[in-house]
Design a protein around this nucleic acid. Structure first.
Lengths: 239, 239
DNA sequence: TGGTAAGATATGTATAGTTGTATAGTAAAT
DNA sequence: ATTTACTATACAACTATACATATCTTACCA
């Protein structure tokens, strides 16, 4: 790697070396790469030169870095710019209630003004807040937050803890049938905390879906919001 | 160059998130906040980063912590800015075919590979490209591009020049009835030229809707894409 | 009923390690 | 002379882990 005909920059040689390591399967998706200091020792260069090489991999989408933690092999070593976006052929009605979930928070609290309005309950009424992360093939697809009015659905919190399926939990809690009244869609920027969970960069475009599900007599039983990663998800509306 | 993290410090983002929770009334004075560990899970960060955020709230006098007990709300912020509200609503079915249009370009050219695939014509087949801008109250709402296969619809270009209404133009061109097969939605960044037309900043989140309209015998007669400004539009899906 | 001890929980503190950023400097190529 | 590639150093921000200390909960016993 030292003065090899002086043509290729050192950082590019390092990037290529790491790239071939990835191609050989030496590291699996999610694995942590050696630290910058270790790589600097191994290649006999300055840490910044290694950083330059890693930055190239990050730019290619092969690697994700996290301050204080390390550099990790990205979930999808092969970039699917267009083809695989459509893999999430989910019906909009099912938005956010598919398998492969990770519960981030599940608690009971008082409804804020906006939430109360959507659920048609008085402000401050007790609600169950279900906050989580949806993944596909280990890759974050969306984060969601569902709110259930505890006045109408009593045991929903415990039910959600068991099943982690909204449909199932509602059924256990006594809501056999429910329908989505309307869905609203818009595009927003990822906040810093959203970006952390979704493993994107702050400010990246997200597709926000919000809607209310109502029970048999038109009473709201769930107010749900979902933020999809624009790069990874295309919602398909069947007519 | 391109790093994987945003600009706002994570601890500050967490502090802001908690602050807005307080402002929205999720927690009342005297209430106990979630534990540091729970918040660390929720935000996907280390416990110390959460502590840093909470420390900021303690410093502001909003929160009081007691070792071994938890963090409790001391006061609620009064001057926390609430996010800007959505000002316009559009029906998804009417996406891109509302009055108040401004034609940006109307010409005939060869279809690209992706466009040809959507229209089910050979690559390079002649199409009519209808490019325009939708406004409401003088403010740009969306830009759209509709493509019509000239092999199937001959006089569409001239018809569009007269009416500027897609439905009307198709009727004039001999397509009396057409239906939208499916609509696909995702979020993208505004390109420089899109940003210019829409009077937003490059990189702002846009809601992209794409779909195909098919004629009486299932033949695609139009491939349309619309980019809505996320800040100004919420699509509402009626069920 | 009431008190106490044990264990689980939760915050506080300490230390070390890792990535991100900023600044300055050196050598070689253009 | 300016740019480019790399080195060198220092510090900031976040992570990881361990442990101390205060509080709450529960069970047990008198």
């Amino acid at each position: 790697m030292r003065d090899s005909s002086g043509k290729t920059p050192i950082w590019k040689a390092i990037a290529d070396a790491l790239r071939s390591d990835l191609a050989e399967g030496r590291y699996s998706p999610g694995d942590k790469l050696p630290t910058e200091a270790a790589l600097a020792d191994r290649f006999g260069v300055n840490r910044h030169t290694v950083r330059h090489g890693i930055a190239a991999l990050v730019d290619d989408g092969l690697v994700r870095t996290r301050r204080g933690a390390g550099a990790f092999v990205a979930a999808t070593p092969t970039d699917y710019p267009i083809g695989n976006r459509v893999r999430f052929h989910e019906n909009l009605i099912a938005a956010g209630r598919r398998p492969e979930k990770r519960i981030l928070a599940l608690d009971e609290r008082a409804a804020t003004q906006g939430e109360a309005k959507a659920l048609q309950v008085p402000t401050g009424a007790p609600v169950c807040a279900y906050h989580g992360l949806s993944l596909a093939d280990g890759q974050p697809i969306a984060i969601f937050e569902s709110l259930f009015p505890l006045d109408r659905i009593a045991g929903i919190t415990a039910a959600l803890r068991d099943t982690s399926s909204v449909t199932e939990a509602l059924r256990v809690a006594g809501i056999a049938d429910y329908t989505r009244t309307s869905t609203r869609l818009t595009a927003v920027r990822a906040t810093a905390t959203q970006a952390l969970h979704l493993q994107v960069t702050e400010g990246d475009p997200l597709l926000r879906s919000s809607g209310v599900n109502t029970g048999q007599f038109g009473q709201p039983v769930e107010y749900g919001r979902t933020w999809f990663v624009g790069d990874r998800v295309t919602l398909t509306l069947e007519t």
